[in-house]
Simulated scan of single mutants.
Amino acid sequence: MKLAGKKILVTGSTMGIGYGAAAQLLEEGAVVAIHGRDMTRVRDAIQKLGGGERLVAVVGDVADLDSCKSIVQQAVAKMGGLDCLVNNAGIGELGYLEDLSEEHFDRIINTNLRSAFFLTQYALPELKKTRGNVIFTASTAGICAGPTDSHVYAAAKSGMISLGQSLALELAPYGIRVNMLCPGYIDTPLIAAENAKLNGQVFQFIEACVPLGRLGSIEECGSAIAYLASDAAAYFTGSVISNDGGATAARSWGGRN
């Protein structure tokens, strides 16, 4: 197995892309720290993944800096080290400019961007020991504009991309790789909820505008994260990888047809 024995912390891994990543990493032989804000949900995810000694529970709110430090400390203590940090935790609350508050802005930036910076900082001593790597789950919203109500979310994800590229340069002398995965429309509970709220318009838009004509799956994101975490990707650093069914490329001409 490609990741046999590797110790990996995946933040926000009780559902969605983080859960898909954890499942793939586990399948490839890694020891995985499952993280969430609620211990019950963390334990449920571990049980769903099959349990066992290669899964450990980590709890904390990434929006809080003391909690970020605790999350890393818990993972390192329970796994006995750290080879890879997957900065995946995030929230996707949307809103139009005239409706947004300072509290909304701070919540999105703190959860999606600030946490990724400080989790990486707190993990750095362990990653230096293992010549490990960091993966940021960014978004195609950080590469090109849209949707029109994603202002703060897009700013946070764009910040993650710039942060990751800068860190890739700083940390390369330590043998630490840093890469950014940018998912497009992925079949997660958040997308499903947004689609239901808009009476199916989200799925209609995806079918019309994504060249492959469909949502991506959490398994497809998980396999990309597992690859970036592995030694097979040893020459990847500072890379921004779109996993979006061609959506970013399609922006240059407006859609599928």
Rank of each mutant, 00 (worst) to 15 (best):
I161T: 09
V31G: 09
E126A: 14
Y227R: 03
V134W: 01
G213L: 13
A247T: 14
G213M: 15
R256F: 10
E207I: 03
I241T: 10
L9F: 05
G216F: 07
G95Y: 04
A208D: 13
S139R: 01
P211S: 09
I161N: 09
A192R: 15
K69H: 13
F136R: 04
V62E: 11
I17P: 06
I108N: 00
I8G: 05
S162I: 09
R107G: 05
V152W: 02
G50W: 00
G18L: 00
Q73D: 14
G50R: 03
G60N: 05
S242Q: 12
A250V: 10
E194P: 12
I241G: 03
A89L: 04
A250E: 13
C144R: 15
A249K: 01
I8H: 08
A123L: 04
G246C: 07
V202E: 01
M79P: 08
A4M: 14
N112F: 07
I8L: 10
G52E: 05
A250C: 11
C144D: 14
T248N: 08
A123F: 01
V32A: 03
R54F: 11
T111R: 00
S101Y: 07
A33R: 03
V178T: 05
V32M: 01
P125H: 11
L181K: 02
N257S: 15
A233N: 04
C221K: 00
Y174R: 09
S158R: 13
K129E: 14
L100T: 06
Y185L: 10
Y185R: 03
T237C: 07
D44H: 05
G36V: 00
N195E: 05
A63G: 15
K157T: 07
S150Q: 14
T188L: 06
Y235H: 09
V62G: 03
V32L: 08
A116C: 10
G175I: 03
Y96A: 15
L100S: 08
D44M: 07
L113Q: 06
K128F: 04
I71L: 04
L49F: 11
S242D: 08
A145S: 11
I218T: 14
A247R: 12
G36S: 10
E219F: 00
N88R: 02
E103G: 10
N87L: 00
E93D: 14
F205M: 14
S150T: 11
A77W: 12
L3R: 04
S223C: 01
K197T: 05
S150R: 11
D64I: 14
L190V: 15
V32W: 02
R251H: 12
C209V: 15
G200K: 03
P189C: 01
L25K: 08
E27D: 14
F118K: 06
D66C: 09
T40I: 11
M160G: 08
F118Y: 13
S223K: 14
G50F: 00
E126R: 01
S139D: 10
F236L: 10
I71V: 14
N88P: 06
R41M: 09
Y153P: 02
Q24N: 12
H104K: 11
I135E: 05
M39H: 08
D66G: 14
V76P: 07
S242L: 00
G246S: 11
L124A: 10
T140P: 05
L127E: 02
A249R: 01
L65G: 06
R256H: 10
G200Q: 05
S230T: 00
R54T: 13
G142S: 04
Y185I: 00
K48M: 13
G12I: 02
A145Y: 14
